[in-house]
């Protein structure tokens, strides 16, 4: 009987394959991305001094975790996530920090740039929503350079090795996604 079952199993596998269930190209090709090898990635922090970090060095800095939840300009929600990484203020400190009247310009090699003023770097001045996208008063927020999302290393497709996340100690606080820069590789402090 077992011998009789083997051809049945083979037939089942073959029928699945013929029906497009194995080995065929997916209906939509997957996004082609580099493998998640971040060994050559560097983050340049250009303040009063210039500091360059590897991912390993970033991960050795004091880590912070919080709740992150973003929404796109057309209302697509991303999250909620448990975001782990380094606070922007901590990362800026060795390069001279940020003063009143200065801005943090955070950019990525895909050509995206976002600018945070001094107030925002301190966690103020963001628009916040609840999970139903109704505006709510902003709880205390912080800007995080996230390298871990929900306990796993941030993948390239999710903006890894490092992306900006606006985090809160409260759950369900949604922030505008334009500030969540993916693939961050440069932070510059500039006069406003």
């Amino acid at each position: 009987m077992i011998r009789a079952a083997i051809p049945v199993c083979i037939l089942l596998v073959l029928s699945c394959w013929c029906a497009g269930c194995a080995g065929t190209a997916p209906a939509s090709p997957p996004v082609t991305t580099p493998a998640d090898d971040f060994s050559s990635w560097r983050l340049t922090v250009n303040g009063s001094t210039v500091t360059e970090y590897t991912l390993e060095q970033i991960q050795k800095l004091p880590a912070t975790a919080g709740n992150g939840f973003a929404v796109s300009t057309v209302g697509i929600k991303y999250g909620p996530y448990i975001c782990t990484g380094v606070l922007l203020t901590d990362l800026l400190a060795p390069s001279g920090g940020i003063s009143e009247g200065e801005q943090a310009w955070i950019s990525a090699p895909d050509g995206y740039l976002w600018v945070f003023d001094h107030d925002q770097v301190q966690g103020n001045g963001f628009i916040t929503f609840n999970e139903s996208l109704k505006e709510i008063p902003s709880p205390p927020l912080r800007i995080l350079l996230m390298y871990e999302q929900d306990g796993k290393p941030l993948s390239y497709n999710d903006g890894g090795p490092i992306r900006v996340a606006i985090i809160s100690d409260e759950k369900g606080v949604v922030t505008e996604g334009s500030a969540w820069v993916k693939w961050v590789d440069k932070i510059e402090i500039k006069k406003a």
Binding site: S72, T73, V74, G75, Q103, D117, S178
Partner: peptide, 18 residues
């Protein structure tokens, strides 16, 4: 660079839906 109105007359949000 950062568009923060200084009073409540003008409101700016990321997208039209907001």
């Amino acid at each position: 660079e950062v568009l923060h109105p200084s009073d409540e007359k003008l409101v700016i949000r990321d997208g039209s839906i907001f």
